[in-house]
Design a binder for these strands. Structure first.
Lengths: 201, 201
DNA sequence: ATCACATTAGAATTTAATTCTAGAATATGC
DNA sequence: GCATATTCTAGAATTAAATTCTAATGTGAT
């Protein structure tokens, strides 16, 4: 089934099992506090296997991070393509984020609470490429509305914080259990606030 | 100089030396990657001393976190008391944050990038008390303007993300070196956006 | 069947965190 | 000014975790 020198079929499954086990541990104990052995237990694999596929805890965390970010980004672009106005686009950015976090709270918690990962050089450049591609696409989508004068002209690096910052901040709050009101119930408020902050008037 | 059973004079200095050393290490290597020995080297103290005062790396990180948050909060309240209008208050929240982060980038980086600290129960409840006191004061300051109809009436837990979320998000960006434009240059934009998002219209 | 390589396993090693015991410093009561 | 209670400092000893390494096994290609 596979060519010489290529991974066999079961490999992707094994990787996924390890990633899932790691996410469960990270979520329960925190990235710093989970041990490689805990992941190994949960994934029912050997140390050797884990190190072979990911090179250690950092490697597992990196892979999980990249997988999560990619999924989040891909989903947004898909929904954004279907929007017809600046307002719809801005609202979609906020609402998609709220949806995604509500649906994958564990993964979201991991992405938001883990600025402590030490990516290996390759992971770092892969991430950089992902970000560039994604934000490039998003900016090119919104760009025309700024040109048409439907959105405020602002320093480019301020759009993302202004539009996404609040819902992200609230998501952090909700994910950490410090507020009960579900994202879905307040997402509209943030969508509205984001649009008010960037609409031309 | 000190009473029986009480810490001697040099103790506070020693604690500060250790905290400063830890901050430098955390900033250079990340919290997870710095070892207790690195902190000990930098602080020129013994393991015993470090464990005596803080009980370990987590303890040092907790103390640093509480110290940082307290300083940030105290500064804001001070400036807020001097404000006369809702708009001035909202702008002050944003601008003070920008100022503080610009002035203490290392400490700010530590506060923002360290959601991975496992606080001991006492530290946890101390933090909780600090937050309650602080946000209680801030909400009581702003409350009247909502009542007077000068600010929008919104779900209470959404004000902080809406007002502070964007500048916080941008601060993260700037602190991680992914953008060059200094906070001071864009702070006005965020202050303006925050006010637009919460003003009654 | 046999080869090349990916994969798995777990023992051995290395490295870091934490505990523990003892001694030095400090301020006070007498 | 000496006895004493207590804090503080030091670093060796211990424990726990991360990582490396060697050998064995599985898999598909030829």
């Amino acid at each position: 089934m596979s060519r010489r020198g290529q991974p066999n079929v079961s490999t992707p499954e094994r990787r996924q099992v390890i990633l899932a086990a790691a996410l469960a541990c990270f979520d329960e104990f925190g990235v710093a506090a989970t041990t490689v052995d805990q992941i190994r237990d949960q994934a029912r694999c050997s140390i050797g296997s884990l190190y072979h596929h990911f090179g250690g805890k950092e490697g597992v965390a990196s892979a999980l991070f990249i997988e999560g970010i990619s999924d989040l980004n891909a989903g947004l672009l898909l929904r954004l393509e279907a929007c017809a106005s600046a307002e719809e686009g801005v609202r979609t950015v906020v609402l998609h984020y709220a949806d995604w976090v509500s649906r994958q709270p564990q993964l979201a918690r991991f992405l938001l609470h883990s600025r402590e990962i030490h990516f290996a050089p390759e992971a770092k450049s892969e991430l950089k490429a992902i970000y560039q591609r994604h934000f490039g696409a998003v900016f090119s989508w919104f760009g025309r509305f700024v040109l048409r004068g439907e959105m405020k002209q602002l320093p480019p690096e301020t759009y993302i914080p202004i539009i996404s910052g609040p819902i992200e901040d609230y998501a952090r709050l909700w994910l950490s259990g410090r507020t009960r009101t579900p994202l879905a119930e307040v997402a509209e408020v943030f969508a509205e606030a984001a649009w008010n902050a960037v609409r031309a008037r």
